[in-house]
C-alpha cells in the first residue's frame, strides 16, 4: 500500500510547529519517529492533509532533571533513553522496559512522545508512565498544560490531547528513596506487543507495600490501574506469597476483551500470570 498524497512541513522550532498544527480547516498530524504513523498512512487508515515533522525541533529532544523529577522531551527516542545515564540512575525501570519495546531498528526512531500520543493499549510506555505517576506536558499556540498520565489515556488510540496540541515532555517524579519495581510481560516473540503485561511499583525503603501502584497493559482499552489490588497490597509484606495470591485473585472480578489470537479467558490468565510474575520480580 502507498500513502494517499499529503503535504509535508519540517519546522525547525516549536512555535512554527504549533502554528502549523493550529489549522482548523485541514487535517494535520505531527510526525515523530513514524514507526506507527507511516504504516498507518500506507494502509490508508490515516490520511492527513499535512504532516508536521518534529524531527528538527531540538528543544523537544532533551532529558533534564532536578531534585524532584526527571523531564523527558517528547522527541527523545527509545534508543536515546537507553543510552541515558541519568535515566539509568534515577529510574532504572525505564531501562529494564525498553528492550521489550519492538526491536532496535524501531527504537532508533520511535519516540516516547509518539508512543504516548498514539496510546496503543498494548504498548509498554503508557502503562509504565501511569505506574510512575508521570505527568504529560501539552502545548498549543496559546500555552502549556499538564495532565496526569492516568487521566491522559482515555481509550484505544485515544488521549486527552486536542488536535492542535503537541505532547512536549513527560515529567516523572523522583522519590527520595528510589521506588521498587516489578515488571513482566507475556509475548510469543521478543519485541512483539504484549499479550498482557504488568507493572508494580512500591516505596523502596519499606518491607511492606506502600504507595503501591499496579498497572496492567494489553488487557484493556487503556492502561489498567487496579486500585483494589493496590489497596489490598499496601501494608502487607512484599514477600508474603499468600498475599500475592489473594491480590492476583482480585483480577477474577475483571472481564477482558479477547483478541485475534486469544480468547477472553486466555487474556485473564495472562493478566494474572503477568501480575504474579511482576510481583515476583519485586522480590527477586
Amino acid at each position: 500500500m502507498k500513502a494517499a498524497s499529503f503535504l509535508y512541513e519540517l519546522p525547525e522550532d516549536l512555535n512554527t510547529a504549533l502554528q502549523l498544527l493550529n489549522s482548523s480547516d485541514i487535517d494535520v498530524l505531527p510526525l515523530a519517529g513514524g514507526q506507527s504513523l507511516m504504516p498507518m498512512m500506507n494502509f490508508r487508515v490515516s490520511q492527513p492533509d499535512l504532516l508536521v515533522d518534529l524531527n528538527k525541533i531540538d528543544s523537544l529532544k532533551k532529558i533534564d532533571s532536578d531534585s524532584n523529577s526527571i523531564k523527558i522531551g517528547s522527541m527523545v527516542k527509545y534508543s536515546d533513553m537507553e543510552k541515558s545515564d541519568l535515566i539509568k540512575e534515577k529510574i532504572p525501570l525505564i531501562n529494564n522496559v525498553i528492550p521489550f519495546v519492538a526491536h532496535s531498528a524501531i527504537r532508533n526512531r520511535g519516540t516516547i512522545g509518539g508512543s504516548i500520543a498514539l496510546a496503543d493499549p498494548a504498548a509498554e510506555f503508557p502503562s509504565l508512565l501511569v505506574s510512575l505517576d508521570a505527568t504529560i506536558e501539552l502545548m498549543n499556540i496559546k500555552g502549556t498544560r499538564e495532565v496526569k498520565s492516568e487521566d491522559f489515556f482515555t481509550g484505544i488510540f485515544e488521549t486527552d490531547r486536542k488536535t492542535n496540541e503537541l505532547v512536549t515532555s513527560i515529567n516523572i517524579p523522583i522519590n527520595k528513596s528510589p521506588k521498587k519495581f516489578g515488571f513482566y510481560e507475556i509475548t510469543r516473540r521478543h519485541g512483539d506487543y504484549a499479550m498482557a503485561g504488568a507493572f508494580v511499583t512500591t516505596d523502596g525503603d519499606k518491607k511492606e507495600f506502600s504507595n503501591s501502584r499496579v498497572v496492567l497493559f494489553a488487557v484493556s482499552t487503556k492502561p489498567l490501574r487496579i486500585i483494589d489490588i493496590e489497596v489490598f497490597l499496601n501494608g502487607n509484606l512484599l514477600n508474603d506469597v499468600s498475599v500475592q495470591e489473594n491480590a492476583i485473585d482480585i483480577i477474577n472480578g475483571y472481564e477482558f476483551e479477547g483478541d485475534l489470537h486469544n480468547d477472553t479467558e486466555a487474556k485473564k490468565t495472562y493478566a494474572k500470570v503477568s501480575l504474579k510474575r511482576a510481583l515476583g520480580e519485586l522480590n527477586g
Partner: peptide, 13 residues
C-alpha cells in the same frame, strides 16, 4: 494481513 498479526518465526526465539 500484516506481519504484526501473522507471526513468522524470528531469530530471538
Amino acid at each position: 494481513v500484516t506481519l504484526a498479526d501473522y507471526l513468522v518465526p524470528m531469530a530471538a526465539e
